[in-house]
Design a protein around this nucleic acid. Structure first.
Lengths: 142, 142
DNA sequence: CCTTGCCTTAGAGTCCACTCGAAGGCTTAT
DNA sequence: ATAAGCCTTCGAGTGGACTCTAAGGCAAGG
């Protein structure tokens, strides 16, 4: 069974040893120790950390992650709470994607404009402005 | 013609007066002044600021925004540079959306799993893992 | 008249997630 | 044997974008 010392593990997952010790301190990832107290990580740790990184990549904060880990440690009784938490994170992420797409639409319209691809008729501009207003309204609904 | 004092403008655009003065200091938004040196903002400033906020919302940094504003101030000779800059920002934003969607896919799969909606057959799990590996590989291409 | 809002400069504080350094001491690899 | 890697604690530094305070003063509305 393959194991990794902290330096190898860091290289494998693309984090620094500092960060790994920091995550450990925060309770996110608890490696094993050998007879000399040296940390070692297993393939299971690789999978778990990659999952953590996916969660972080959705915008989940350290604090939410810590909550999640604590709930997990408490066993099956907390699956409902975990679900609520993950649903929150997911809907935040959806909102963020939507916001990004809206902002990007504006940016790309400006790019088109710079490239002279937009017919600069009053009608067109006005309809795009109306569209933007609608987007801005929608963002306020959050 | 409607104008706004800084407090009204702040309320209108949803920023603090601190932030508006900060943006001004950074050269992003330069309001007019009345006879007593009090700032006032026009409808054009509203539009410009909203555009700035859309750009910021795509992930464009202060520093990029400052570059953009400086180029703009230099006139038509810089449209090419502005286009390059905006293209960069747009492709970064696209990448960020893709990353978010990938991470969200993992999160939602986990949610499904919690809800018992996933057939926990070895085959299914393995194919999902293969899928994740593929996503992770793709992220490395950036 | 008095409160509220605005003006200035300059600097300090905040938040988040790391990131690093120091110091002293084991352990592992070549 | 020697270097490279790892161990600890603990505190300080980083970056980005604000966010706020202080101090002293002018200006408009009720």
């Amino acid at each position: 069974m393959t194991t990794y010392r902290i330096g190898q593990f860091a290289a494998k997952v693309g984090l620094s040893t500092y960060t790994l010790r920091y995550y450990e301190q925060e309770g996110l990832l608890l490696p094993h120790r050998d007879a000399n107290d040296q940390r070692y990580y297993t393939e299971a740790d690789v999978k778990w950390l990659i999952f953590i990184l996916h969660l972080k990549g959705t915008g989940m904060t350290m604090s939410q992650l810590k909550t999640y880990v604590k709930l997990r440690a408490q066993g099956d009784a907390t699956t409902d709470q975990r679900l609520v938490l993950l649903h929150d994170v997911a809907s935040e992420a959806h909102a963020q994607i939507r916001a990004l797409q809206n902002n990007l639409a504006v940016l790309e319209h400006k790019i088109d404009w710079y490239q002279g691809k937009v017919d600069a008729t009053i009608a067109e501009d006005e309809s795009f402005e109306a569209y933007l207003n609608r987007l801005d309204q929608e963002e306020k609904h959050d």
